[in-house]
Structures are given as structure tokens and as C-alpha cells.
Design a binder for these strands. Structure first.
Lengths: 234, 234
DNA sequence: CAGAAATTTGACCAGTTGGAAAAATTCTTA
DNA sequence: TAAGAATTTTTCCAACTGGTCAAATTTCTG
């Protein structure tokens, strides 16, 4: 199971490293100095906030710059264009986001393996909701910038894990059902708590909408999938 | 069970009907002529396309106007501002979107009742994916324009249906579990097929990503929830 | 068909947006 | 510490944006 590095197309990647002595040294390359690393992080952090809320078109460089506490031209010194920031966020997010799925162990015990996958995905929704929303936003737009990653890397990974699930089904460890839609349903239910957080909180109200909601969700999902996947009783 | 009319705040609603003989007769009011009805529909249709993809900020009046096959000023003749179009889409969508939940019948047979709810929600994802995405987009932005509807009307409706589910649980008709998270999980899994359609198709690939995917999803979800909710065996 | 009402168009505008250029400032390091 | 590199600020711009306005055109209605 090779750890499939998710990597988006990046035109600049092929360029001959650019002239390093020109007027804008930081622009084309990866961070060279301490300040560059730090500021780029600040920018990415701010950009995550804005992009995850407004989507690519809806977000403005000004908003990001303000959130990052710097002027627009200054921001553009580190990322020469809006698109660059977005792409960076996308690749980083994809990588982290898929880790739990990658970590499903075909040699593990099926039920605990699935249970812990659900739990990890839910924890990600709790701890990194903006990344989830960023991804969701890109999906809603039809994934114009990552469609090829989805249909190659992601598809490959899911195909692989679907086979694992199928083998578990064949061995009678879990109920025989569609492994792809099983994975979709785990994605959907867990990411829902990040993407639709406002709704969840509004509906649960003051009483149950607090931090405890993730615990409740975990308990519920565990029950749902546990019994939903229980192999047929003899 | 009163049919709770979802209605967003609309400042114009209170105004004294505006002077009808002025230069801009169509603007403030509801459609009066045939042309107005027709064009408004064309605009709303086009706007749904754009807003559901780009979100409120990301969408431009020009895009909508072009999609509607008319000039921007012409469009603005029917909807004096961008926000009006969006609000109209929102209220209409909310109303339709919640119908299946409203229709859950407390006197019905629990299992078929839930099964048909899931099926209807899934059908809506298949037949009205853009409405689903419009809603999702608003959620991602923190639901700034409908948060009050969510915490009043929607919460009320869900509270009511949660009670129904609880009564079914008490009577041993379905497994005892959290009714709110049960509803969330149905929303999440069914809407996933509209909101994340690109991803679903990319992962399923040419082979299984065709129209059949909704049938497969329906079958899977039925199994998952059916067995997941099966009451404890004696 | 004439006049009025409704609709459409073209010109325009002020504010925003992504981004470029260059000057000004602040580090580094020989 | 002075020169060179890195960073930041100021100024600017062309395209885009939401929206206005009056004139032109089309569609009713008596």
C-alpha cells in the first residue's frame, strides 16, 4: 500500500527554477528564508478562513490580506496570485484529509478498523472544519481544480479500499453491501458535522449544540454503522 | 401538524405596496403580467445555476443575466437587486426541501415511513441537485441569511419529528438511538449525492458512475438504515 | 389604431478587484 | 558597517462589479 502522494498539477513546477537574482526573488520559488516560511503560513491560515467561507471566486485578496494582517501587495509578494494560495491549500488539505482512509489496515480486525475510521473522520471534522469546508466548496463548484486528482489518485485509493471491504464481506466479517457507497456514507455523515455545523447547532439548540455534540454524533454513528454492518445472523 | 410555512424576513414585505404608476412598476411588487411571471422564472432558473455553483458573493449579476439570455439592466428591472433573487431562491428552496420531513407521518408504520423518507430525500438529490447545492453553499458561509429560519422553523420541525422518532423507539419499533443525529445522518447521506456529485462520479468511474448510481445508493442506504435501526432482537 | 403601460437597451458611474512597478525600508552578512 | 538582498509600502491601473437613468422599443387595452 504505497502512500499515494496527492499532488495537483502545477505549471510552475516545470519551470527552470526562475532567475534568483531578479527584483522579486521570493515569488516563484518555495520558501527560502525564515520570514518567508512564517509569513506564508500566516497567509495560508488566513486564506483558509476566507476561501472556506466564500469559495474561490467569492474570496478576495484584500480579505485574505487583512485577515493575515498585511497589505495586499505585501501578500502578493509571497504568493504572486490568488490561485497559487488556493492551490497550495488544496494539495495540503487533500493530503491530510485522505490520511484516515489510507490508514485502514486490510490486516486489521474489520469492525474496529471501520469504527476507528469513522472516529478519525469525525475528529477531523471537529478539529479541522475549515479544511472540510474548503473541500466542500470546491466540490460544489464542480471541483474544477481537482477533478483530475479525484478521478486518478482518489479513485485509485478508494478502489483499493473497496477491495479490502469486499474481502471482509466475503469472509463474513461484515454484511455484504456496496463498499463504495459505504465509504460515501461515512464521508457524508462525518463531514456533515463540519460543513453543516451552523445547521447542526441551530437544530440542536443551546441545550445540546455545545461541544458535546461530537460525542453524541460519534456514539450515534457507531451504532448506526455497527448494526448496519453486522453480518447476517446465522 | 401545521405545515409551518418557511418564510424569510423580507423588509419589502412591510412596505405600503409602493406607488404603482411610477417609472419602475415591476420592481417592488410580485409579478403582475404574463411576461413578468415568465421572465422571473427564467431569471430564477439561471440564478439557481450560478448561485448554486459560486455562492452569493461569487456569483455576478452579469453571469446570471447571460445565463438568462438578457441584459443586466433588463434583469435588474425584474429583480432590483442581487440579494432579492437570492432570497427568493432560498425561501422557495427551503419550502420544497423540507417537505419530505414534514410528511413523515407519526401514525404510519415506522420502518416504511423512514424508508420512504430516505427515498424521497435521495430523489430530491437526484432531481434537484442545484437546490441542494444552493443550500449547502449557504451553510458553508455560516448561513448568514437563513440562520434565524434554521433556529426557529427548522428547529421546530425537527424537534417535532424527533419526538415522533422517540415515540417509535419507546414502542420498540426501531432501535433506541439519538433521533436528532439520525435525522442528520439521513440528510447527510442523501444530500451527499447532490452536493458531492462530481466526487461520487469521479470515484465510481465510467463503469458505475452513470444514472444507476442513485439506484445503488438507494439500495445501500436502505440496508444501512434498515439494519442500523432494527430493534434489538429478543 | 392611438395612447398608455410595460419592457428593453445603451450609456454611464462609483466602488471593488486582481495585480504591476517602483520607491522606501529593513534585514543579513561579508 | 556598508553593500546587497529581502521585505514592505505607496501609487497606480485596467477590468469587473452592482446598480442607475433616460431614451427607445414593444406590448397591451380601450
Amino acid at each position: 500500500m504505497p502512500p499515494i502522494k496527492v499532488k495537483m498539477l502545477d505549471k510552475d513546477e516545470a519551470k527552470p527554477a526562475a532567475e534568483t537574482g531578479a527584483k522579486k526573488p521570493a515569488k516563484a520559488g518555495r520558501p527560502r528564508t525564515r520570514i518567508q516560511r512564517e509569513k506564508q503560513d500566516v497567509i495560508l491560515e488566513a486564506a483558509l478562513d476566507v476561501f472556506s467561507r466564500e469559495g474561490f471566486r467569492g474570496a478576495t485578496i484584500d480579505q485574505i490580506a487583512e485577515a493575515a494582517g498585511m497589505s495586499k501587495p505585501n501578500l502578493l509578494y509571497y504568493f504572486p496570485r490568488k490561485e497559487e494560495i488556493y492551490k497550495r491549500l488544496m494539495t495540503e488539505m487533500l493530503d491530510v484529509w485522505l490520511a484516515p482512509l489510507r490508514d485502514i489496515d486490510s490486516d486489521g480486525d474489520p469492525v474496529p478498523e471501520i469504527r476507528s475510521y469513522i472516529r478519525r473522520k469525525l475528529e477531523m471534522s471537529r478539529d479541522f472544519p475549515r479544511q472540510s469546508r474548503l473541500f466542500a466548496n470546491e466540490m460544489l463548484q464542480g471541483a474544477p481544480r481537482i477533478i483530475d486528482v479525484l478521478s486518478t489518485d482518489l479513485k485509485g485509493l478508494v478502489d483499493e479500499k473497496a477491495k479490502v471491504l469486499e474481502s471482509w464481506m466475503e469472509r463474513g466479517k461484515i454484511r455484504r453491501t456496496d463498499p463504495y457507497h459505504l465509504i460515501f456514507s461515512i464521508w457524508a455523515t462525518t463531514q456533515h458535522y463540519a460543513d453543516f455545523d451552523v445547521q447542526v447547532r441551530a437544530v440542536l439548540g443551546k441545550g445540546r449544540g455545545g461541544e458535546g455534540r461530537f460525542e453524541d454524533a460519534a456514539r450515534f454513528l457507531e451504532t448506526l454503522f455497527l448494526y448496519g454492518l453486522l453480518p447476517k445472523q446465522p
